[in-house]
Amino acid sequence: MQKAIVIGAGPAGLSAAIYLAKANVEPLVIKGVTPSKYLMTTMEIDAYPGFPLGVNGPSLLDDMSKQAEYFGARIRTGSVKSADLSKRPFLILTTGHGSIEIEPIETESIVIATGASFKSLNIPGETANFGRGVSTCATCTGYFASEKKVVVIGGGDSALEEALYLTRYASEITIVHRRNELRASKGMQERARQSKQIKWMLDVTPLEILDDGHQVSGLKVRENRTGLETVVPAERVYVAIGSTPNAVFLDGQLPVGRRGHLMVKPGTTETDIPGIFACGDVQDDRYGQIASAVGSGCMAAGDCERYLEGLQG
């Protein structure tokens, strides 16, 4: 029987683990085989507090893990296949790294910090250059776009938000979208069209992200009407076509918002089921920053600690 299990070892989950461990809860952290893909593949983060020259994503995540373990958290690599939240104690079924054997674990509380997966274009050059000029977060890496030509791929509010943020740094931003019409709200479109730095390339299909062996050099696209292929010069490419919260293993046991994020009570990390908490990008459909994930992880630890104290009292 565990007092608390933290599912996920990204910035939200590890922050929750640190605070729970400091409270002598001794949490068990289930770390995915590829925890926090964004941090593990991003070599340059410029917006996390305390690092004036930026910070390396994998190093930041490694330091968080060591800090959690130092205070008494236990970290186990594996996957959560399913969870039964219908009765107490809660039951999760996990598999270890490289194993197919199912292990049941009972726990008094669960902190869900499984994050969200950014949707990919699945074109050549995207994966190879991720973290080396390809990014999914302008506010995390925007400074490194200073005085550069950049491409933002997408047509929704998130894509235009990325483009508008990048006007602070980039010399030129080209928005590339598959359709001839944008999905973004009218207000967001009006703001973007007022910027002289933003150019538009609509009704084109991204084909390949090009590089010169050291950094991104452009985006190859095909014009949908003519079939003509051209290259958009760019030193950075931002993919902003949406994300999907990682909550499939819950099988609909918790309510979600319109985009699939777990819903929590306002001002807390509490879900509709007492003893189940959610933090980070799996429940955050607005901010999506490392710092906000860390903050909600701290909140989840506090909420969980108070819940466990109530059980004892």
Rank of each mutant, 00 (worst) to 15 (best):
K3L: 07
K3D: 01
K3M: 04
A4P: 03
G10H: 07
L14T: 06
Y19F: 14
L20C: 04
K22M: 15
N24E: 15
V25G: 00
E26H: 14
V29S: 00
V33D: 02
V33T: 13
Y38W: 12
L39A: 01
T41Q: 08
E44K: 09
E44F: 14
I45R: 00
A47K: 09
P49I: 15
P52R: 12
P52Y: 14
V55A: 05
V55N: 00
N56G: 06
L60M: 14
D63L: 08
D63M: 11
S65T: 15
T77Q: 07
G78M: 10
K81E: 08
S82M: 10
D84G: 10
L93F: 13
T94P: 04
T95S: 14
I100N: 11
E101F: 14
I105P: 03
T107K: 05
V111M: 04
F118A: 11
F118K: 05
S120R: 09
I123L: 08
I123P: 06
P124M: 10
G125Y: 10
T127K: 03
A128E: 15
A128K: 06
F130E: 09
G133K: 04
S135I: 05
C137V: 10
C137D: 05
T141W: 03
A145G: 07
A145K: 01
A145H: 02
A145D: 03
E147R: 15
K148I: 14
K149Q: 12
V150P: 02
G155V: 02
A159P: 01
E161G: 09
E162D: 05
E162I: 11
L166E: 00
R168F: 03
A170S: 11
I173M: 02
I175R: 03
H177E: 00
H177G: 00
R178E: 00
R179F: 05
R183D: 01
Q194G: 11
I198A: 01
W200P: 01
D203G: 06
L207E: 05
E208I: 07
D211L: 08
D211I: 09
D212A: 11
G213R: 04
Q215P: 02
K220I: 06
R222A: 04
R222E: 00
T226I: 08
E229H: 15
V231P: 03
V237G: 03
V239P: 03
V239H: 00
A240F: 08
I241R: 08
G242L: 11
S243T: 11
S243L: 07
T244L: 13
T244W: 08
P245S: 10
N246Q: 10
V248P: 01
L250R: 10
P255E: 10
P255K: 05
V256M: 09
R259Y: 15
M263C: 13
M263R: 03
M263L: 15
P266G: 12
G267L: 08
D272K: 10
I276S: 00
F277C: 02
F277G: 01
C279K: 00
C279A: 14
R286G: 12
R286Q: 13
Y287K: 11
G288F: 08
A291M: 13
S292W: 06
A293K: 01
A293I: 06
S296Y: 08
G297I: 07
G297V: 07
M299S: 07
D303F: 01
C304M: 07
E305M: 08
Y307G: 02
L308V: 12
L308Y: 05
